[in-house]
């Protein structure tokens, strides 16, 4: 049973998927097999995301996708595998803010600068949640409580270098309030801290909260997005509540620098179609992901803006 190995099997599954839904629609892609590399371990968020892309984008682009996880060094190993790979459109990286944070915080041999965004697909909304029986209904309530009694509000966030941590530090500056931001080893631990009352408020992505939300244990009071997020009740954004904070936790595809233009064009066209695929759409909406499709030009600009804000944050809080 185990005598085929992961990659062989994944390849086989992808081939099978592409055979079932046969008609390749787009112009010929230069290679047959495309490797999608992630730093997340099998079963992790990015791994599932890339697998779904492979499943639905394969038929559209007429190639088969193989997902590989290259863990270690906070994404540096995966970046190196992509940047040093062949530049013919056969290897890509599932990109999230993590690889930029790793590049800025440590000195990996290959950084995000050796790579170029290809397309962006989603925004993973960052939400603020509390226990269902919590007295806080809005961000305003939380700020008021923090102002009345500084350090009475503990905010549970995931890892120290994460975006949810960053947004809560900025939130304090913005509202001129003082809260305790408690970091954890991962998103799961952070939710546990809210559940057991160590923290009064938490920041998390929707997918991780889903189980607790369905059980009625927690409720979301705000999202750091441009528009309201469907599927979580009618929760107003932070912006609507008067706090101008929008955090974009993008999910996209990046590749080595200077890939052939026809490869980029194929991805832009293919992903644009993919985002409208009803099955794919059903999946990402259930996951709480927002459609944030960006072409390469847009994605490059977005990355520049993101890097600038991140560097400003790290400098402000003396992290390097």
């Amino acid at each position: 049973m185990k005598h085929h190995g992961i990659r062989g099997l994944l390849g086989a599954a992808a081939v099978a998927a592409s055979l079932v839904a046969a008609p390749p629609v787009l112009a010929d892609y230069p290679v047959q097999t495309v490797r999608l590399i992630t730093h997340s371990s099998p079963g992790g968020g990015m791994d599932v995301f890339l697998r779904k892309i492979g499943q639905h984008l394969g038929p559209i682009m007429g190639v088969h996708f193989v997902v590989e996880s290259v863990t270690g060094s906070g994404g540096a190993a995966a970046m190196a595998a992509v940047a040093n790979g062949p530049k013919d459109g056969s290897v890509f990286y599932g990109s999230t803010p993590t690889h930029i944070i790793t590049s800025l915080l440590s000195n990996p041999s290959v950084t995000y600068e050796e790579m170029e965004p290809v397309v962006n697909l989603f925004n993973d909304p960052q939400t603020v949640y509390v226990l269902t029986e919590s007295p806080y209904q809005t961000l305003g309530d939380v700020v008021a409580a923090a102002k009345e009694n500084p350090s009475s509000i503990v905010v549970s966030v995931s890892t120290p270098g994460s975006l949810d941590r960053q947004v809560m530090e900025e939130f304090q500056t913005l509202t001129d309030s003082s809260m305790i931001v408690l970091t954890h080893d991962g998103g799961g631990d952070a939710i546990l801290s809210v559940l057991n009352g160590t923290a009064q408020v938490g920041v998390s992505e929707i997918a991780e909260l889903r189980g607790q939300m369905e059980a009625g244990k927690v409720r979301i009071i705000a999202t750091y997005t441009d528009e309201r997020v469907p599927g979580i009740g009618d929760v107003p954004t932070a912006k609507e509540q008067g706090y101008d904070l929008v955090i974009s936790k993008f999910r996209g595809i990046a590749g080595a620098k200077d890939l052939p233009p026809e490869v980029i064009a194929a991805w832009e066209e293919g992903v644009a179609k993919l985002m409208e695929d009803p099955e794919f759409r059903a999946w990402y909406e259930a996951e709480g992901l927002q459609n944030a499709y960006q072409t390469q030009a847009e994605a490059v600009a977005a990355r520049e803006a993101f890097v600038t804000s991140l560097q400003a944050f790290f400098e402000k809080f003396d992290i390097n």
Binding site: A76, T102, L105, I319
Partner: peptide, 18 residues
Amino acid sequence: TDPLSGVTRFTFDEPDLL
């Protein structure tokens, strides 16, 4: 990586130690 602040400690710029 430091568990609270996120600064790196004793890694000597070696990504494998991150």
